[in-house]
Design a binder for these strands. Structure first.
Lengths: 113, 113
DNA sequence: TCTGTAGTTAAATCGTTGCTTAACTACTAA
DNA sequence: TTAGTAGTTAAGCAACGATTTAACTACAGA
């Protein structure tokens, strides 16, 4: 039997295994705002986007994007790849699947990141 | 092609089909509080429970349970069955699957409610 | 009628959070 | 050096939300 307390020590925030209730609540809280949820849906549909691209497509300021992206990053939901002065954001799909699977009992198939 | 606006008119809050971004955000917001998430996890594990049973198992007051259960009900996440003066709560699993599936692209198998 | 159980509701408190504005760094190119 | 692009951070405000307490309805049994 693997306890949640063990899992927490293995994956501090990113993915790999099931997270505990507090962590999952934090992930759901990150998805609970319409603006952030639209950001996540954009990334789910388009794969990888820079902050400016997201802000433009959504019609919000870069400051507001940055504000929300921090919440998503702290929940472990987005991965950031630097290229010059541009930062590309992508979704941590395996963390999403793990988090959702803990409630539905169904863990979807995720290929890579 | 089925638009989200069409879906909304079909299923106002309960299940059946995909919900729009605002509705999904509301569902995630209902799951965003640790106390409510524990309630949902209890129902996911044990199927059907009365308010008192949930409050007892969680070590919270009935008033606090009632407060949170209202949020869950408004999101459409719980179904209530009356029996005498007792109300039994159960999870709307298909709504959960639809909501999660809109992000992961994977819609789990749900049998009945 | 009185007591206990099950649940609901309102008010008050207090912390959190979403948004805007503005100032800031860092890199690139003319 | 100047301007433009990409992103970050802080301050302030308004709105929301989690919790506790207390008062309430409704029903069942002694």
């Amino acid at each position: 039997m693997v306890k949640n307390s063990d899992r927490k020590s293995i994956s501090s925030v990113n993915s790999l295994s099931k997270t505990d209730t507090e962590q999952r609540a934090k992930i759901f809280a990150a998805l609970a705002d319409p603006t952030r949820l639209r950001m996540v849906e954009l990334l789910a549909a388009q794969g990888e986007l820079s902050g400016s691209e997201i802000a433009n497509q959504m019609g919000i300021s870069l400051a507001l994007f940055c504000h929300h992206s921090r919440t998503l990053a702290e929940a472990g939901l987005i991965h950031i790849r630097r290229e010059g002065q541009t930062k590309y954001n992508s979704l941590n799909r395996s963390l999403l699947s793990d988090c959702f699977g803990s409630l539905t009992g169904c863990y979807g198939i995720t290929e890579g990141r």
